[in-house]
């Protein structure tokens, strides 16, 4: 059963060489059970930070994150650790950061199942089955170093889902992969999502890949800037009432431009202070 995840006004600040940097400045995001969500956005926008917070690797500076029934911010380190060993699968960027290079794929998956194996009530699949699921049939005895980049990435996915988690967090799964490799990874993610009903959140720079996942959430400047669904791009109204305009609008008007907001039941209209009465085509709808 997939786990839902909810981020409410999540802020995260970290320090680099004495300077405080706001990585996330109020993220509101709801991910439903069984969804496949792609987090996209420019470098430094906070995508990886958000996924690390969802994984419980870090704690938010403010706001609330819930995964299933768990309030991530309130869990102890031990509880978070148990959660990552059972209900949240994490695949970090770069397969080398997920796999033991000198151990076979089978042993990698087997090792990732140990926490779940020690926890009552969790049904575990045979590592070979898991490898089959991600398209690595018959490669259980192979070591990561002998695989292609795409195979390694799928092996990392296999390790991520070894404990049959409800939520799978994947960071840049198609990085440095060719088209075939990207397709294989996508197929593996879909298989995991459909056959295991696992909720999947993937961070990616690859917009096309993101689109294939169905729901694309754009993170800009530490906030959820937009969301694409079924081929359409939407602006997202944050809990504090803020909306991020598309970049081309911001670029056209310039920062600091003033608007008048007109709205009725179905329409919200932003009218520049110095501009003329807009045509109907210029209306923004939400």
């Amino acid at each position: 059963m997939g786990l839902a995840a909810v981020c409410a006004r999540v802020l995260h600040v970290y320090e680099i060489e004495g300077s405080r940097v706001m990585a996330l400045s109020g993220v509101d995001l709801t991910i439903h059970s069984g969804e496949m969500v792609a987090l996209v956005g420019p470098s430094g926008s906070g995508k990886s930070t958000l996924i690390a917070l969802l994984a419980g690797l870090m704690r938010p500076s403010a706001g609330r994150i819930t995964v299933g029934a768990y309030d991530i911010g309130r869990l102890s380190d031990a509880e978070l650790s148990r959660l990552r060993g059972t209900e949240i699968g994490v695949v970090l960027q770069g397969s080398a950061r997920n796999l033991l290079p000198y151990v076979s794929l089978y042993r990698n998956v087997w090792l990732a199942q140990r926490r779940a194996a020690a926890t009552q009530g969790i049904e575990l699949y045979d590592p070979e089955e898991i490898l089959d699921l991600v398209g690595l049939h018959g490669l259980g005895r192979a070591k990561p170093g002998r695989l292609t980049a795409g195979q390694r990435q799928r092996a990392a996915l296999a390790v991520g889902i070894a404990a049959s988690p409800g939520l799978l967090l994947v960071d840049e799964p198609t990085s440095q992969l060719d088209a075939a490799g990207r397709a294989d990874v996508l197929a593996a993610l879909r298989a995991v999502n459909t056959k295991r009903d696992t909720t999947i959140v993937a961070v990616t720079h690859d917009v096309d890949f993101g689109s294939e996942l169905g729901r694309v959430v754009t993170i800009r400047d530490g906030r959820v800037g937009a969301e694409g669904r079924d081929g359409q791009d939407f602006a997202v109204l944050a809990a504090d009432g803020t909306v991020q305009l598309p970049p081309e609008v911001v670029e056209g008007l310039g920062p600091g431009a003033l608007f008048l907001v007109d709205h009725d039941k179905f329409t919200v209209r932003l009218r520049p202070e110095s501009g003329e009465e807009p045509d109907d085509d210029d209306q923004e709808e939400s």
């Binding site: 990552r84 994490v90 090792l111 390790v159 404990a163």
Partner: peptide, 16 residues
């Protein structure tokens, strides 16, 4: 360290 992080990420039991 990356390898140890990969193991820690799977939260195996303390003994393992």
């Amino acid at each position: 360290r990356p390898e140890l992080a990969a193991v820690a990420l799977r939260s195996p039991p303390r003994g393992i």
